[in-house]
């Protein structure tokens, strides 16, 4: 924890074509906004950091968490949380099941259940554990998705336009919640909404275009 996320000359290639190249240090508690037109490789940048680039794409350079090189680690051991445009709550699990899925390993069944209940209360959704995620409102889903990622105890957080699909009235509210909750983590926010960048308050990097 409390290590900066460092992109050291990170370049992403699709076949032989270079999509982007950048170096960046994100301190804990800092939100760096990456902006660029669609097709500029914003999502690919995040996939390179999480280690989930699709077939046919590759990355060069280094991704570091403090001094630890993440390049050699499989995605599930990098401890990089990510939130997408869609909430991607697992449709086969209950709301509580989704949170328990994210909750880091350890603890008895009762302890884990208590932590899930506490997390739900924390985001104003007390008693929602047994609900079907499909019955939640957009704002509620966004809160559950955020909490699920935080419960996995990530060391850095990536945001792939997570507010784009929320309607205007909700957007500011959810955005504030995410930034509040992610305090203490290095955060990279990918967006093409200038209002997101303003709210993030950190440095803005523009790629492509």
């Amino acid at each position: 924890m409390d290590e900066p996320l460092i992109l050291d000359d990170l370049a992403v290639f699709s076949g032989a074509r270079r999509l982007l190249q950048l170096s960046l240090t994100v301190r804990p508690g800092q939100v760096v906004t990456v902006m660029g037109p669609s097709g500029s490789g914003k999502s690919s940048l995040l996939a390179a950091i999480t280690g989930t680039l699709p077939a046919g794409m590759r990355a060069t350079g280094q991704v570091l968490l403090g001094k630890m090189n993440l390049g050699a680690l499989p995605p599930e051991r990098r401890r990089i949380g990510i939130l997408f445009q869609d909430d991607l709550l697992f449709p086969h699990l209950s709301v509580g099941g989704n949170l328990a899925f994210g909750l880091a390993q350890g603890g008895s069944r009762a302890e884990r259940r208590a932590r899930v209940d506490a997390a739900l209360a924390d985001i104003g959704l007390a008693g929602f554990a047994d609900r079907d995620p499909a019955t939640l409102s957009g704002g509620e889903k966004a809160r559950v998705a955020l909490m699920r990622t935080l419960l996995s105890e990530p060391c850095a957080l990536l945001l792939d336009e997570p507010f784009a699909k929320l309607d205007q009235s909700l957007r500011a509210q959810v955005r504030q919640l995410v930034f509040d909750r992610a305090r203490g983590l290095p955060v990279i926010l990918v967006t093409h909404d200038p209002a997101d960048a303003d709210a993030a308050g950190g440095p803005v990097v523009t790629i492509g275009g």
Binding site: A47, T50, G51, T52, P54, P74, P75, E76, R77, R79, I80, G81, I82, F84, D86, L88, F90, F101, G102, A104, R148, T149, S152, P154
Partner: peptide
Amino acid sequence: LDPRYDQMARSLRQG
């Protein structure tokens, strides 16, 4: 199957 479900699970540290 939406591959992002799998990516999401990986980012949640699931093997």
